[in-house]
Design a protein around this nucleic acid. Structure first.
Lengths: 348, 348
DNA sequence: ACTCTGGGCTAATACGCATTAGCTAATTCG
DNA sequence: CGAATTAGCTAATGCGTATTAGCCCAGAGT
């Protein structure tokens, strides 16, 4: 079986007895205002298109400066194959729904550089994303050079999550971690806690910074001064003695940057015979765990992941629709407080 | 910021003081045999490529008949991400690993037609897959017209799972369900069972047919005759009386096409006070459930999903590498028997 | 001196489409 | 009735690349 040459616009034109330009115009519905094609001709073209099973060549379309209505999705953290258990799942749901609404097709990219298993956009001197009109980026990367290159290439992309490059904000849809973290601090304080401790990893990214800032804002609003003493960054397991020391020192509430850390604290407390929230309170700054173990009894706030995904697509669409060169856009979505059951009154 | 025009091969050529053709030849490493480029010139070109941050345009590359080294992955069952079903996970893992090995980039396509939520390749008169050199297809579709069109378009694709079109075999990597099912039948018989019942849904696809054929082959080898009585196809829940009737009728072993059905039978047995394998035996024709609940205690066979995914990529690679028009290729992988604990001796 | 060979390159073309300047015939206007 | 307008279309060009026929030149062979 010979690999048949697919019909092109020229074939259509010939069959319909018109010029190739007309075919393009009709197919792209450009027969408006300035340019006019009689509706009979349009019908004839469409008829031939159907008869010949014509499908436009997306590569040619893109090359000629048109759009192929494909959006790429790239995650730096390995999210492929996607599993509903994955942290990124809700983002993807939002992305897909909005893409469907705006009639875009989606391509989830995956490419791992063989050596270190890290994911990168550019490889073998090639950027696979560019077959799409624009892309949504997810997850963290250490390699800011890639983003930098993508940006200087003028490739349209939107990040899910706040992301800055050389001090300049990129286009993104972020969660308002600052306000949400402040809210948590105030919520904890409203239960009578006057000494709290922020715990997080030493490796920092934008969202970690935002959380810390929210924490600081909260303390400030409450008129507290001992902020420096109230932030701890460790990566290793927390020793039991450490926790006891903190408690002895008068700390009554722990605010963990991640749910995971919050869990650990609670478990550690159990080992020491302390229970939450009777003996001490714990809150997390966002439901950062897997989608599947979304535990409502933990005091935290909910990251609007679906909405963020959808928002990113909208933003990208907006950028693509605007022929002018858009500025960097930022959009923040509010997080919802999830009271849970791990924050209680101070033990008297 | 102006959307910068990216450097093209012409820019490289100018900067390196050579013709554009040389740039293309060097970049694609075509300077061999007939065509020769001095290594100094090659070095010079590469240097300029690096200096100017040149990245080839994949659309142009594809249009010009080259390859862009992208493989598509399309699933008819929605694997991305709504109603995600883990069943496909191992396939995707295999695909990703082999793609990595062969240095292909992967794109997971997703597109749902808005109306009925079904997934289709062609939409809005466009075939998104074609931006990739070729594609791997997963999952079942009722709409054979899509496959037919894809094939007549000459688009290179490989199915994971046996798939035929108008009686003709497509290119695929399948599991040898026939042999495996036969093996199960013989395994069951080796425990003394002489009357078994094949249970499956009425909606049939290729793999269902293969399983039934394997069942028949097994019976034939054992010299049994009552095949007609031994196959039941129902979609609704099995009533308790039905199960009892079968048992009273002398059926001692149930062979379910899916693990789900096997589960149901066991549960139903429990309700009736019967236990497996003491009162009756149950086996399934393949670990068809989600990857997450892979239960080793069920007697079944294991579908080599990872290997199938990898095999599909290899096959596709082979097709793409062969400039001639390849015939349809089929590849079958063996399934491994998983004895489990649900088949025992006949109750005397 | 003349052809032959082959290395190293260039010019030209095609891929399939979108876009735009203009062209022609029909219609309207003054 | 000539000029201006407009509807409906065509011709030409460019997008960035791969491919191929063929050109030029140096050296070898006779």
């Amino acid at each position: 079986m010979v690999r048949k040459r697919r019909p092109t616009q020229i074939d259509i034109a010939r069959a319909a007895g018109v010029s190739p330009a007309v075919v393009s115009l009709v197919i792209n519905d450009r027969a408006n205002g300035k340019i006019r094609i009689s509706s009979q001709t349009q019908d004839r073209v469409w008829q031939v298109v159907r008869d010949l099973d014509y499908v436009p060549n997306l590569a040619a379309r893109q090359l000629a400066g048109g759009r192929n209505h494909l959006l790429g999705v790239f995650t730096f953290d390995s999210a492929f194959p996607v599993d509903y258990n994955n942290f990124y799942y809700p983002f993807l749901v939002g992305i897909e729904q909005m893409a469907e609404t705006l009639r875009y097709d989606l391509m989830l990219f995956t490419r791992t550089s063989g050596e270190d298993g890290s994911r990168r956009i550019y490889r073998d001197g090639t950027n696979a994303l560019q077959v799409a009109d624009g892309s949504i980026l997810l997850g963290g990367t250490d390699d800011r050079a890639e983003l930098s290159r993508l940006k200087s290439d003028g490739y349209p992309f939107v990040y899910v999550g706040r992301r800055e490059l050389d001090g300049e904000q990129l286009t993104y849809v972020g969660a308002d971690y600052v306000s949400a973290s402040t809210e948590i601090v105030e919520y904890v304080a409203s239960h009578g806690h006057t000494r709290s401790l922020l715990m997080g990893p030493s490796c920092r990214n934008e969202s970690s910074h935002d959380r810390e800032q929210g924490f600081r804002v909260g303390l400030e609003r409450l008129g507290r001064r001992d902020t420096d003493d109230s932030i701890v960054r460790i990566d290793h397991e927390i020793p039991g003695e450490q926790l006891e020391a903190w408690l002895d020192d008068g700390i009554t509430a722990f605010i963990a940057e991640s749910v995971t850390t919050a869990f650990r604290l609670i478990e550690l407390g159990k080992v020491l015979g302390k229970s939450v929230p009777a003996d001490f309170s714990v809150a997390a700054l966002g439901n950062t765990g897997n989608a599947s173990d979304d535990v409502p009894w933990i005091t935290t706030f909910q990251i609007p992941r679906r909405e963020m995904g959808a928002g990113a697509v909208q933003l990208l669409h907006q950028i693509l629709s605007n022929p002018a060169n858009p500025p960097n856009l930022q959009q923040f979505l509010a997080c919802r407080l999830q009271p849970g059951e791990t924050v209680g009154p101070v033990r008297s």
